[in-house]
Write a protein that binds this DNA or RNA. Structure first.
Lengths: 192, 192
DNA sequence: TTGTCATTTCAGAAATTCCTGAACATATCG
DNA sequence: CGATATGTTCAGGAATTTCTGAAATGACAA
């Protein structure tokens, strides 16, 4: 690995992080390298830089393609396939969220829904049923929110994230408004 | 495993999901079992139900304790330690978020910050530096948002999630307001 | 077509992770 | 103090995952 030290550190770190995830070390390192590279890289250069076998890199790239995390392109005068990551980091985050959702969350929701169709027989089953219901509710809520914000353009998503918990103030106001409208009249809502 | 079929299915599913994550199959299954159980379970019963060795269960429980995902308790008239998951699913989600953040995100942010202190030398390094800057920015934004909403009480968090992308309308209004105030006067803002 | 270069596949070697049983530690009771 | 019950640790076997080299496949140019 004859990479600049900071690049090497980043690549190694993402290799480790990769293993904490389902992704393996090789795949993490390949992605990190592509992410930092200032030009598209062909498989043999990746193998060279990271000290992996050519075939290992081939499999890693295939995996990253399945995750839709890299783009293939051809450079003029070079028959080899070259790979890049999107320039836009938000695009990467969005893809990651979609793919993880598809692989991890959706199957879980399906299992929960299927189970919740059935009628529990014993006390224990009834309790388990309730637990699965609350889990299903929480996951639905979270993924519903995800779906919603995925539709926003980057700019708005960023604005929303920056707003963070301050959105809660709007909600408080809404609640107060709701209270005022539906309950008997109280003293006037205070400013904001 | 003499568990009701739906419980067995859930447990197996979470075992699989566990492996997709860093967590191993055993730990996933133990957690799933505790999550569904209508009473605290001692280690030997867990081992029995799941068909794991007692020692394996001991290690799994230790791991779950490190993640702060289970609670230990003693039952009157029984010397064994019994384990449960929190009743409140939101509490579980919060803990998961905190722990994953501690283990995965914080070290990454540290690495990025350390690297970004240094001055890039070559063109390639300069490019890598910029990439790390944008990654750092995105991660900071996301974790900042997380910190913020972690402070909200459950009720408000749920309300915020339900609101989802509709919050964006508030932001649009804010933007329009900002435009109106800072730029030269235009035609009146249309209905809000 | 043939030759060359690029890529993929895959059997099995290498590395890693998981899991167990046995030994040890600790606690409680009589 | 044993005796018994419970919990932990850990060496090493089992299972799984990762990685490689060799062979197969594909793509293109001459």
């Amino acid at each position: 690995m004859d990479l600049p030290p900071s690049t090497a550190a980043f690549v190694l770190h993402f290799g480790e992080m990769g293993s904490r995830w389902g992704i393996n070390r090789t795949v993490g390192q390949i992605y990190a390298l592509l992410f930092l590279s200032d030009r598209p890289l062909p498989a043999d250069e990746i193998a060279q830089s990271l000290g992996f076998s050519r075939s290992n890199v081939s499999m890693g790239l295939k995996e990253l393609e399945n995750w839709r995390l890299i783009k293939l392109q051809h450079l003029p005068g070079d028959r080899r396939e070259h790979f890049t990551t999107p320039d836009d980091v938000w695009a990467i985050v969005r893809t990651l969220a979609e793919e993880r959702r598809k692989r991890e969350v959706d199957p879980t929701l399906t299992l929960l829904r299927d189970t919740l169709m059935q009628t529990p027989r014993s006390d224990a089953e009834r309790h388990a049923h309730k637990r699965m219901e609350s889990l299903h509710e929480v996951i639905s809520l979270l993924t519903g929110w995800m779906d919603d914000v995925q539709k926003l353009p980057d700019e708005r998503l960023v604005a929303l994230l920056k707003l963070g918990g301050r959105v809660a103030r709007v909600l408080e106001a809404t609640d107060r408004f709701h209270e005022i409208v539906t309950r008997k009249p109280r003293r006037k809502a205070q400013e904001g």
